[in-house]
């Protein structure tokens, strides 16, 4: 009985991972093994970081029970501001441009948090819908709606460099992503602030009455989202060697999808970084697999949409089963 339960629990926890493995097996068969080739796996490693980085930032916000629709725009404004520093001030040092990019992202995220907590806008959907447009507009405005290119090798290094042999190498951006995930995981699970994020997402009022500075927690999370968007932006600049004001138009939706596929709850308080990473890889895998099979991009969208719905449906089933188990457990303690 209990071993069955443990098994169920493990399957429940590893659900997204199992789905990913299943997907990989299917794609491998469908592409006659092309999918699992070394060069293609490297491709997937290359395609994952941008979604994954934006996803983990989004996770911080979703854990609060919030949402950040401005993620794609924050990516754009971060890279465009450093692009402008390059173009207008002629500074090309990575020690200036990278910090400028990151600080811009953090600032943009902080503004989201301030709008929410200090202006008491009713829902982050509204605040970030507003800034989504504002940041995008600003990015277009300061760049004159044109891409800025000519970044130095130092700046593009993160997005382009690889480690390993010519046959099999891993993109630096992917390694950086994993590192940032590990740090975020430790942050969320081991630090007081991380604990406060989960508590706030689980019950805002209980958190406030327990003396938690809820405003600060929220502002931090939105700023974190901005930070991760800027990091994704750095990878983006490396890839294209240019700062494009229309970059990542749908990045926020991909990021949200990664979190949801990874099992984060929209109500807040539930979710973890590894689920989000798997969600991000899953999106990359689907895109990649579809490309390999020559599936058109419109069909790709349909597949990704279906996966999101399916993932959430499985989650609903799971939480229903959990709720039932909870009721049974209460019954037991009362009988005791």
């Amino acid at each position: 009985m209990s071993s069955v339960n443990t098994l169920k629990r493990i399957i429940g926890k590893l659900g997204p991972l199992l789905a990913l493995v299943l997907l990989i097996i299917i794609l491998t068969i469908a592409t006659d093994g092309k999918f699992i080739s070394a060069s293609n796996i490297i491709n997937i490693f290359r395609q994952t970081p941008i979604i994954a980085l934006m996803g983990v930032g989004m996770l911080c916000v979703i854990l609060l029970g919030g949402i950040d629709l401005s993620a794609g725009s924050m990516l754009a404004i971060s890279i465009c501001v450093s692009g402008c520093v390059l173009k207008n001030l002629g500074i090309s040092s990575m020690f200036v441009l990278l910090p400028v990019c990151i600080l811009t992202g953090i600032a943009a995220g902080t503004v989201n948090g301030l709008l929410l907590t200090k202006l008491h806008l009713p829902h982050p959907f509204i605040a970030t819908l507003g800034t989504k447009n504002i940041y995008r507009g600003l990015a277009l405005l300061i760049t004159g709606a044109a891409a800025i290119s000519g970044f130095s090798a130092g700046v593009t290094w993160i997005g382009t460099a690889r480690v390993g042999s010519p046959q099999f190498n891993i993109p630096v951006s992917f390694i950086m992503t994993i590192l940032l995930y590990a740090i975020t995981h430790i942050f969320l699970t081991r630090t007081g602030l991380g604990r406060k994020i989960y508590s706030f997402g689980g019950n805002k009022e209980a958190a406030r009455l327990a003396g938690i500075n809820t405003d600060r927690v929220q502002i931090f999370c939105y700023a974190a989202s901005g930070f991760f968007c800027a990091m994704a932006g750095i990878v983006y600049v490396g890839r294209l060697n240019s700062a494009v004001p229309l970059a990542s138009l749908e990045g926020d939706l991909d990021a949200i999808a990664a979190c949801i596929i990874g099992g984060a709850s929209f109500l807040g308080g539930k979710g973890n970084v590894w689920g989000t990473l798997i969600g991000a890889i899953m999106i990359a895998v689907i895109r990649n697999g579809c490309d390999l099979m020559g599936v058109s991009s419109d069909l790709q969208q349909i597949v990704i949409g279906a996966v999101i719905v399916l993932a959430v449906f499985v989650d609903v089933l799971r939480s229903k089963a959990e709720a039932k188990a909870k009721r049974l457990a209460i019954g037991k303690t009362q009988d005791a």
Binding site: G192, K196, S199, N203, A206, G211, G269
Partner: peptide, 20 residues
Amino acid sequence: GEGLVLDASIKNNLFLATID
């Protein structure tokens, strides 16, 4: 509604007000 984070563990609820 105001005292507990229901989905969180007993442990995390016990120390909700003393995180710092």
